[in-house]
């Protein structure tokens, strides 16, 4: 067993893991942050998407030890108290979910996408950029709408993503 230390949602955390422990297992089982989901476990569905040093990655395709010393953000780290992150607010407003299983990964991918496109997002770009996230309810239309609305809200500095 090895001890790993990293910053998760702004807090320094440590835990004892095996070399083979996946980052997603560490987040869910050791830290109890079960908002990060495991969908396919084969790095295709994106339900486990988190931010590693500010960039979206799949936590099922990364060992916990690889993230030693890193800054991690999970879905639990987005809202500020009771105030939803603009992307969360937009998913709520536009009903960007059906069963909700893929939603944390969709939102983490979307926040990263919006960061990389400060100029704004068109529908084609959003759909292409969602390549790594699968919604098995096939609820993509509202997910895309929500991300475009959130992108606009972030661009204009509005807190309400409608």
């Amino acid at each position: 067993m090895t001890n790993v230390t990293m910053t998760v949602n702004g807090q320094k955390v440590s835990g004892s893991v095996e070399g083979r422990t996946l980052l997603v297992q560490f987040l869910r089982d050791t830290l109890g942050l079960t908002g990060t989901h495991v969908g396919c476990d084969t790095s295709q569905c994106g339900a486990c998407t988190i931010h590693l040093d500010g960039k979206s990655v799949k936590a099922c395709s990364l060992l916990a030890v690889q993230a030693e010393g890193a800054e991690i953000t999970t879905i639990e780290g987005l809202a500020e108290g009771d105030v939803l992150h603009p992307v969360q607010a937009a998913f709520k407003e536009h009903h960007g979910l059906q069963c909700g299983f893929c939603t944390p990964g969709m939102i983490m991918a979307a926040t990263d996408m919006i960061r990389r496109h400060p100029e704004g997002l068109d529908e084609g770009t959003v759909r292409e950029e969602l390549e790594g996230n699968i919604c098995r309810c096939t609820g993509y239309h509202n997910i895309v709408k929500a991300i475009m609305a959130a992108s606009e809200a972030v661009k204009t500095g509005s807190t309400k993503a409608a």
């Binding site: 960039k55 990263d112 390549e131 790594g132 996230n133």
Partner: peptide, 9 residues
Amino acid sequence: IGDPQVRHM
């Protein structure tokens, strides 16, 4: 290559 998450790693 892959998708945005894969391209980050």
